[in-house]
Design a protein around this nucleic acid. Structure first.
Lengths: 330, 330
DNA sequence: TTGAAAGCGCTACCAC
DNA sequence: GTGGTAGCGCTTTCAA
């Protein structure tokens, strides 16, 4: 119920020391005598004192604020990533600030806004917006890490899933399960991740002596668009017996075309979204190693902040196969 | 590429005015002459200046930071809410800070952390954790708004969906569609929202002369638990011909029990999650009016901040029926 | 090890 | 309407 904010001055007075002493007590690795430290801690606890992070950052310290730029939250994968990032940051006593484009789809205003909060760094995971966001962060002088794609200009480091490996894992699983005529339905044709997945998938198939039967992209990686793409592809090539794809495509084939799994067709999902393990789905998927990605981002952030933007290297995180019964109960 | 941060001093110098003039230019409703304002704006633009929000908040201004306390992101409804809140805050030049419990499920440390950032207020939507969070925010002196439940102590205001109305809408829809033996599968037995929904549902049924056939709760409102509950209920009362429930229950009945819709059984979903409109589902649902809820929260925040915690009143936001083809294509 | 004092960038108050 | 100045809470020299 304390109405007034407790300042270091209050603590100092109660502890009978100077403000400097209080500050030192809360500065890791500063030089304070045991007795001083103890009385300060005691006074601080009694008063419920916490250093004002805003005031601290004004003295040249890091603010502890990290911007997370994301354009999409509809896809559960995105929100999972955001949650994981926030958790990881919290563990380092940092705080995430979500930055989203405004209604017109523009990211600039929002970035300007959080820029005013002196964020130490930015994590850019905004899909199609990421290039623009990267540019803006660079000109604002905010050290940044990209997620989910490379920086085509090679200016900043990135963290992403090893998509080729994801493709290979999917291919191996399908072939091991007896697939003979596999196909791929991917995301945006211009999406780096989708391209890499496809490449890994096809490479591995050929290595195993299986000829991939076809592939198609879906314009925006949405459920609907995957649904459509799958219908078209399967109408063109009805002999396809297995697919590496996302949920939309799978539902289309099972529901619209009435194909049964695994008798008629087999699937590996491209995203280990929570839905994949629901009783109705039980879909074998390639995991998106969200926590590991977040961890890798934290490590790069650390490097960037202490040694500079140039010292951080891009990183790939290995996904793995999550094997589940592929049959639907219906 | 500018490396040094631009301060109001820089702008003042370039514009040939004082720091005060710069400050006034960026203070809505301050008194500056047109000519001064213009030259300041020009200089600021040229330098890429934005007032430092952290420094500003040190002068007694509001920080513009708002904590959003949430315990769950797995449920797409939660992340939708967070996104909507962030967007709404951004529109008011405010920034959201997500606060989540740490790995041990404790919210205190996280709250302490963001408390150090002098948040102006907190939005508490943490389900089962919200009572604890509310308590902590109160003792830290952070004005708060609850989402999705009432404060049992009546200390702070809340914003929530009108759950009784949701229940009534569902009942009317089912009866209009010819339902005779409806049942309800809800969330946590202790959950206020679920209880209210049930009450509205049953009241409306009785008003229409239809006797509800049964109901059950599911312990944690998860997909799995709804799935189980539905199987049990339907085994006990196989004559049930319609349900107001969530996804898990619906999938269980269609897939596990093989009941067809709408011939064998009809559904109204309790959440208008994105999935509801997927081609595979096309489920009629009660909307969760997320944007309106966010808007209502903003309005309460405004009241709290300007007139004090006590002046804000709890608010109910009306949901509506989203009617879709209830048949699955399969 | 300690305290006094300067200063981070900003706004508010005060004379002009 | 305008500029000087004090001060927000903190960390960090610098003497002691």
């Amino acid at each position: 119920m304390q109405d007034k904010r407790i300042t270091s001055d209050d603590v100092a007075r109660l502890a009978g020391v100077s403000r400097s002493a209080v500050s030192r007590t809360f500065t890791p690795g500063a030089s304070v005598s045991e007795s001083t430290r103890n009385s300060v801690i005691a006074a601080a606890r009694k008063l419920g004192y916490r250093p004002n992070a805003l005031a601290r950052s004004l003295t040249g310290q890091q603010s502890g604020l990290v911007a997370v730029v994301m354009a999409e939250f509809a896809n559960p994968y995105e929100s999972q990533v955001f949650y994981a990032l926030t958790q990881a940051l919290q563990k380092l006593d940092k705080v995430s600030m979500l930055v989203t484009p405004d209604e017109s789809g523009d990211i600039n205003n929002s970035l300007q806004l959080v820029g005013a909060y002196q964020v130490d760094s930015a994590i850019i995971a905004a899909g199609s917006l990421s290039l623009q966001a990267t540019q803006i962060c660079l000109t604002m002088g905010i050290p940044s890490v990209l997620m989910g794609r490379d920086d085509p200009f090679g200016k900043i480091c990135s963290v992403q899933t090893d998509n080729r490996m994801a493709g290979r894992l999917a291919a191996e699983h399908l072939v091991n399960s007896g697939a003979q005529r596999p196909a791929y339905i991917g995301g945006r044709p211009d999406g780096q991740a989708s391209q890499e997945r496809k490449q890994g998938f096809f490479d591995s198939l050929r290595d195993q002596g299986v000829e991939p039967l076809g592939h198609c992209d879906n314009p925006d990686y949405s459920y609907q668009s995957g649904y459509q793409s799958a219908l078209e592809l399967l109408q063109r090539r009805p002999e396809i017996d297995s697919l590496f794809c996302a949920f939309g495509a799978m539902d289309a084939i099972r529901q619209q075309l009435g194909r049964k799994t695994p008798q008629d067709i087999q699937f590996v999902g491209a995203d280990n979204v929570p839905m994949a393990e629901w009783p109705g789905y039980q879909l074998t998927t390639i995991s998106q190693p969200v926590e590991l990605l977040a961890q890798a981002v934290m490590e790069n952030l650390e490097i960037i902040l202490t040694q500079g933007q140039a010292m951080a290297r891009s990183r790939r995180v290995a996904p793995w196969l999550v094997s589940r019964a592929t049959t639907r109960n219906a």
